[in-house]
Every structure is written in C-alpha cells, then in structure tokens.
C-alpha cells in the first residue's frame, strides 16, 4: 500500500473518528434531552410529592380562592371586581386539592399575569396549553382526536380544547380515582354537560346541514339511546366512551377518537361476555389485581357491578347445567324404560 493511500486512510479514519465522536455527542445530548423531557412529562402526570412545595402552592392558591370560590363570590374581598366574569370561574378549593393538578400553584398554568388584580389583559391568552407539560400525551392523542366526531367540522374543532372535556381544576385520573362508579360519573359529566344541555350544546354546535344558518338541534340523549336497555343504569355504571370510542389493545389507554352513533359500539356482548371489553376500558387500571375471587370470572368488575354475561361463576354454571342435563337425561331414560317394558308387556299379552 502506498504512503499516499495510508495517508488517505488515516485522513478518512480521522474524519470517521470525528464523525463518530459527533455522533456520540449527539446521541448523549439527545438521550439527555429525552430523559429530561420524559421526566418533565411524567412529572406532569404524577402528583407533586414534596410536602413543602405542596404546602407552599396551597398557600399561594389561597389568594386565588379568596375570590374564585363560592365563599369568595359571596364575600368578595374587593368592591371593584367584575362579578359576572367571576361567577364563571368559581372552583371548590377542596375539589381542586383532590384533583390531578391539586398540588400545583394556579400560576403554573395561568402565568404571572394573575399575580395582581386587576389581572393582566393578556393573562388568559398566556395560560399554558396542556401540551406544555403533557407533550407526549398530546402528541399521541392528537391523531385520535382528529379522527373524532368533534373534529369532523373545522368550525366545531376550533372551539374544542382539552379543557372542553377535561376540567383541569376538578378531574382526577382513573388510577387515582380508582372507583369505577366515580370514574363513570366524572367522565360522563364531561359528555352530558353539553349533550344534556341545549344552551351549552348550542355554543359548540355547527349549522344544521339541512338548514344552513340554523344551529344543529341537540338530539335528546334518552331518545337516541332508547335501543339500549336500562339506559340510565348504564350511565351510572359505565362511561359514554366505553361504546363511543374504538377498541384499543390491552394495556393501552382509551382512545380519544369519539365515535358518532353510526360507528359507536352496539354489540352488547362486547361488555356482556366472559371476555368483556370492560377489562381494557373502565376496569383497565384494576385488571392487574384480578384474582378471580371466590371463583368468579371478572371478579374485579363484580366488586363494583354485577354485569350479566361477564361476571359469572364457571363452577356454579357447570353444576347448574349438569343438574338440568341430569333431569333431562333422567326423564328420557325413564321414558325409554317405560316404552321398552310396555312393548314387552304387549308382546306377552299377544
């Protein structure tokens, strides 16, 4: 090999090692950024744990709740407030403290424009979007939401934010709320607040396709669900999204693609069978604790609700089926013996 060739190889390997070191640097930096991002994202999902910070935030929030609560509204600390506007932004400090965001300082989302009163005129527009903390979640859910019935029309989609359905001052995640009945009540409220109120529905509704210029009329929730037996009982015990979202794989969070009545689940057996989809939906956070208590299939569901078809006792079913078959077999055998004896008697007589 010529010297020039060695030099060329040296030069190449030198360039290559420089490239390698850059690659390493980029990988390390990317990993670090990913870690920080991931930490921040997960930190956003978890409830702040440091009791000192929690207490500090609670104290800071007292100043907000001095006005933005039922008590504050009835006993306004100032006389120069816009009470009409205030009436729209009242929260229960106890409910907030128990919510997903209950340990945070209000200003972590609402910004510094709310340090003083009167609040900054740009305060509302400076409120942090959910994606600022929940970036990965939003990135994952956005395509699902875009396929949703709420995003079908641009005019409707433009009015929707995460907070339209998920009230960050009240809502608590399923893993923290635990009780499926409470989860159903909380999550169905998000749907029924609009779909059970002509006034709120009209705020979001688009023009009726048949009558342009006139808003689409809210369909009566009872009427459109009249095919569903025990409708009201369903609303108390399961969420609207159990049927109004497409099925996802086990261990995946429920989809944010809200399905209209044409696409929604209408097969009762989806939930009312041994392989109930409730396991991957409302009871997803509890399924890991399934122990088939006292021999019941889906005993984790049975802890909250008796769901016919889903919460069975296979051994009891076998005993009952066995007894019924025994009765049937017994009378058939008895009948067969009677026939045989009757034929024999007839033969003897003849």
């Amino acid at each position: 090999m010529s010297k020039a060739r060695f030099k060329e190889i040296d030069q190449l390997s030198g360039e290559s090692s420089v490239l390698m070191s850059w690659q390493k640097t980029i990988t390390v930096v990317a990993t670090f950024v990913a870690c920080v991002w991931s930490f921040q994202t997960h930190a956003a999902d978890a409830v702040a744990a440091d009791p000192e910070v929690v207490e500090k935030n609670r104290k800071a929030n007292e100043a907000c709740f001095a006005c933005h609560s039922e008590f504050g509204f009835k006993n306004p600390p100032r006389t120069d407030m816009d009470m009409k506007k205030l009436a729209e932004t009242l929260y229960d400090p106890k409910v907030f403290a128990g919510s997903n965001h209950g340990t945070m300082d209000c200003r972590q989302c609402h910004g510094q424009g709310y340090n003083d009163y009167p609040h900054s005129v740009t305060g509302k527009s400076e409120t942090s979007p959910c994606a600022e903390c929940h970036a990965t979640k939003v990135a994952r859910l956005e395509p699902q939401y875009d396929a949703s019935v709420h995003a079908r029309l641009e005019s409707v989609k433009a009015k929707f934010t995460c907070a339209t359905c998920h009230d960050p001052h009240i809502d608590l995640g399923a893993t923290l709320l635990k009780d499926p009945h409470k989860i159903a009540i909380q999550d169905n409220k998000a749907c029924l607040d609009c779909h059970n109120s002509d006034e709120v529905f009209a705020k979001y509704a688009a023009d009726d396709e048949k009558t342009p210029g006139i808003k689409k009329k809210r369909p009566d929730v009872d009427t459109i669900h009249d095919w569903l037996p025990n409708t009201r009982l369903h609303w108390k015990t399961v969420r609207c999204v159990e049927c109004h979202t497409p099925e996802v794989k086990a261990n995946r969070p429920i989809s944010h693609e809200i399905l209209d009545k044409e696409k929604a689940e209408k097969n009762c057996l989806s939930c009312h069978s041994a392989n109930s989809s409730l396991r991957t939906r409302l009871y997803r956070h509890l399924v890991k604790d399934e122990q088939e208590r006292f021999g019941f299939t889906n005993s984790i569901i049975l802890s909250s609700s008796y769901v016919i078809g889903a919460t069975r006792h296979p051994l009891l079913d076998k005993i009952v089926i066995g007894l019924v078959l025994l009765t049937l077999g017994g009378v058939l055998i008895h009948g067969a013996i009677r026939v045989i004896f009757a034929i024999r008697r007839k033969g003897k007589t003849q």
Partner: peptide
C-alpha cells in the same frame, strides 16, 4: 361485591329449579 350479586344468584338458581321442574312436569 356488588349488592346485586346475591339477588342475581338467587334469581339464577330459582330459574334453574323452575327449568328442571318444567322438564319433569312435562314428562
């Protein structure tokens, strides 16, 4: 468990007894 469970089991078992009775009764 859900308080409806004993109600459901009694309903199921008495239903099974009635079915068994019906088979024997028809025979």
């Amino acid at each position: 468990f859900d308080g409806l469970l004993p109600v459901a089991i009694l309903h199921y078992l008495t239903g099974a007894v009635i079915i068994m009775f019906m088979i024997a009764h028809i025979y």
